[in-house]
């Protein structure tokens, strides 16, 4: 018989290293042709950080995304950005890039204000053009940078950001381990086959507060990827260790979800602006995975009326629990 259930899992997750300094630095060079180079030590591992850093720089400098080149993770030329871990790069390196870009921008704005005889606070840079409030001035960023070069001024900026945290009090455990937190709730719908013990995840709705979603498509990708890892954690993945040796070191014995194991996922992006984040952004990498297994386990408990306490919820475990419950029932 197939039994149907729904479960919910919620989480909060600290962005950045726990109760530790974890700064990031960036350099921005606003070039003669009105394009920019961003240097950041941030390692792109597929999460989209290079794209996000380029977007933040483009937004700050008032140029198109295509006009920003980002050089990353090269210790020969890039400043330290800390690790791509702790769901921290958008928040921390994003801030460093924004600060560096603001410094490069300030010099262009100051020169434009001088040339146009305007107040710098009224100057905007958009799509490579210099604007006076809501009106284009007809001057391009490239013109202004050329003027700067003529006067021997380079339009460079550097920035660094370290989230505000404290050490934790060793006696009480109290303190501020993170400068900001991500929040999420996921709901899973499952079918459980009571004869085979197979749990099939039918649907996951995953709502994540990521602050501003700098790149919504990337945020969805991170959420969907996190859900697949969470399904693996809930149903498939277990490192078997015997005498200090891993017994299932290959993908033939340690199973991860395939496309056939994936339900439809409905990512819901909740944009609650984080005041300390770059344009209000926080992080999403690890949070995407955190609530999934809890939601699935709760859905299985809802379906069966039995709560399983060991992950993964393999068919063997599920059948054993059903049998154990049946054996307690009076004949």
């Amino acid at each position: 018989m197939k039994k149907h259930g729904y479960g919910i899992g919620s989480m909060w997750y600290g962005i950045g290293s726990t109760a530790a300094t974890n700064p990031s630095g960036a350099f921005v060079d606003f070039l003669d042709d009105g394009t920019a180079i961003v240097l950041s030590g941030c390692a792109e591992i597929g999460q989209g950080s290079t794209t996000v850093l380029a977007q933040i720089a483009a937004e700050t400098l008032g140029v198109d995304l295509e006009d920003v080149a980002v050089i990353t993770a090269d210790t020969g030329v890039t400043p330290d950005a800390g690790p791509s871990s702790a769901s921290r790069q958008t928040y921390i390196s994003g801030n460093a890039v924004r600060l560096a870009a603001e410094k490069a921008r300030e010099q262009v704005v100051a020169k434009a204000a001088e040339l146009l005889d305007l107040d710098p606070v009224d100057i905007r840079l958009r799509h490579g053009q210099v604007w006076y409030e809501a009106e284009p001035t007809g001057r391009t960023i490239k013109d202004i940078i050329a003027q700067c070069r003529g006067e021997g001024i380079l339009t460079l900026g550097h920035g660094s950001f370290n989230p505000v945290t404290t050490n934790l009090d060793p006696a009480t455990g109290q303190g501020t381990p993170y400068a900001t937190y991500a929040f999420a709730t996921q709901i899973a719908e499952v079918d459980v086959d009571t004869e085979t013990g197979i749990v099939e995840v039918k649907k996951i709705v995953a709502a994540h507060d990521v602050g501003t979603a700098v790149n919504p498509q990337n945020v969805e990708g991170q959420i969907e990827g996190g859900c697949s890892m969470g399904i693996g954690y809930a149903l498939l993945e277990e490192v078997a260790v015997k005498d200090g040796k891993i017994q299932n070191p290959g993908l033939s014995s340690y199973l991860i979800p395939t496309a056939l194991d994936m339900p439809e996922i409905f990512p819901v992006i909740v944009e609650a602006t984080e005041p300390s984040g770059p344009y209000g952004a926080k992080g999403v990498g690890e949070p995407a995975l955190v609530p999934t297994a809890a939601a699935i386990a709760n859905a299985v408990a809802d379906a069966l009326g039995i709560r399983l306490y060991d992950l993964p919820l393999t068919p063997e475990r599920v059948v054993a629990e059903i049998k154990a419950l049946d054996s307690l029932k009076p004949e």
């Binding site: 999460q47 990708g221 969907e224 979800p257 994936m262």
Partner: peptide
Amino acid sequence: DIARGIAGNLCRCTGYAKII
């Protein structure tokens, strides 16, 4: 059909949704 067609190709990070 698509899920079956790519079931022999593992992806650890996208969750397959955008690939499908």
